[in-house]
């Protein structure tokens, strides 16, 4: 060990003695209050997981309703009402053609 290494080791050794003086510190009441207030505010802004679940469920619900509407609309094509609508359309076309001629 050279001189400068020895000097540094002695400095470390002496500085370590201060450690015990700074020893046991307790949480001061004002800081505890401040930390708890910050913790509570973190809790309030931490509602995103609940909101995300609600949004996800709303999305699934909307998708299900859309799907039901589509199914209903497809199943509705074969009813007599659509036949009547088609007949009406054909009649209107014929009338328009006659008028043009």
């Amino acid at each position: 060990m050279n001189d400068s290494q020895r000097e540094l080791s002695r400095l470390f050794k002496a500085a370590r003695l201060v450690k015990s003086v700074q020893g046991s510190e307790q949480l001061p009441p004002h800081l505890a209050t401040r930390l708890l207030a910050a913790w509570r505010s973190v809790g309030h802004s931490d509602n995103w997981p609940i909101l995300a679940t609600i949004f996800r469920r709303a999305l699934y619900g909307a998708a299900a309703i859309m799907l039901l509407c589509l199914l209903w609309s497809y199943s509705d094509n074969g009813t007599p009402d659509s036949d009547v609508a088609l007949a009406n359309y054909e009649v209107q076309n014929e009338v328009q053609n006659e008028l043009l001629q």
């Binding site: 002695r10 400095l11 050794k13 002496a14 500085a15 003695l17 201060v18």
Partner: peptide, 9 residues
């Protein structure tokens, strides 16, 4: 040789 702790720190 002991060194003064606080000054060392």
């Amino acid at each position: 040789d002991t060194l003064p702790a606080l000054a060392s720190r």
